[in-house]
């Protein structure tokens, strides 16, 4: 964790970004504003008025932070979280698919890693493919999985549309978190040194004992690191999974709708919400990590 001494530099950089954002808004929204003045036959606008106008347009090219946060506030605090106008509603749609997919993907990844570590044949057969899969754009499969999955679930299995969408998105999320977790976990389960494994042999430990008392605990740091990567990937998967399906709810759908109707403020607020979700998810994994370490008797760092 970073020290408190980094707080001031971070805040300075953030403040700098905020200033840049407002300056950028003047530059990007200026031409439209000038157009609006010309159409309304307004001349001789003082510069301060011009700046204030560019920061408060109805449909700005670049909405300013206060507009975005006003939109965020209006769509979270002022409406009930159960109606589709609420951003929290959309965030929950995305988050639930992310979580389901992440749990599924990590579980499968851990399982596969355990098998790979214990079987040389699986290691040699699968690892090259898993490593290679890290270099290909798996996310490109998202539309395929969502649309085909949706059709199979609704058509063949007769699942209602909403759960079918949920399942298809969860599959993408699972798929995206699966590979990082597998790779990290294989590395982690192999991290005990020979001398430690030899010690377990001198204790006459069974394979299960070696696994639970040595391999599993030493793999946990790797597991949590890769789970942080995986949960972020899962969220991206769920968001992208909401784009090509004609889905009407979820942060991805908000992004897509915003881009269709030129609602930039809506896009930005969905983007901020997605970032908040990502941060919350990563921090949550970090918290679980710390709790687990405390339970395992690790000294707090």
């Amino acid at each position: 964790m970073r020290g408190r001494s980094d707080l001031l530099p971070i805040l300075t950089v953030l403040a700098g970004l905020l200033v840049l954002w407002y300056l950028g808004a003047i530059g990007l929204n200026g031409p439209v504003q000038n157009d609006m003045y010309r159409r309304a036959d307004v001349v001789g606008v003082p510069f301060t008025q011009f700046v204030a106008d560019t920061w408060n347009q109805q449909r700005p090219v670049l909405p300013t932070p206060h507009q975005v946060f006003a939109e965020l506030w209006n769509t979270t605090a002022l409406v009930a979280p159960t109606v589709p106008r609420s951003l929290l509603f959309h965030a929950w749609v995305t988050l639930s698919a992310t979580l389901a997919g992440f749990v599924l993907g990590s579980g499968l990844g851990i399982l596969l890693a355990v098998m790979i570590v214990h079987s040389e044949a699986m290691n040699r057969s699968l690892m090259p493919w898993i490593v290679a899969s890290q270099t290909i754009p798996i996310l490109a499969l998202a539309p395929l999985i969502v649309v085909i999955g949706f059709n199979v679930f609704t058509g063949t299995f007769g699942v209602p549309t909403d759960p079918a969408r949920f399942i298809s998105k969860a599959i993408i999320s699972a798929y995206l978190s699966f590979f990082p977790v597998t790779v990290g976990m294989v590395k982690g389960l192999r991290s005990p040194e020979d001398i430690q494994l030899d010690l377990m042999r001198t204790y006459n430990a069974s394979a299960a004992q070696v696994f639970w008392k040595l391999r599993w605990p030493s793999a946990l740091p790797f597991l949590f690191t890769s789970m942080k990567v995986g949960v972020a990937a899962s969220l991206v998967g769920a968001i992208v999974g909401e784009m090509p399906t004609g889905a009407v709810s979820g942060l991805g759908a908000r992004l897509l709708n915003g881009s269709y109707y030129g609602q930039t403020t809506q896009i930005w607020s969905a983007l901020i919400m997605a970032s908040i979700l990502a941060a919350v998810l990563v921090v949550a994994v970090g918290l679980v990590e710390r709790l687990v370490y405390v339970r395992m008797g690790a000294r707090p760092a």
Partner: peptide
């Protein structure tokens, strides 16, 4: 060093964000 201490944590944090979402904005711009 000051900027470095400010930017590094932010840069690390950004890697967890769904940056792909800026796509509609970039298409507009």
């Amino acid at each position: 060093p000051f900027l470095k201490r400010g930017l590094l944590p932010l840069g690390n944090f950004v890697s967890a964000l769904p940056i792909i979402g800026v796509a509609p904005i970039m298409v507009m711009w």
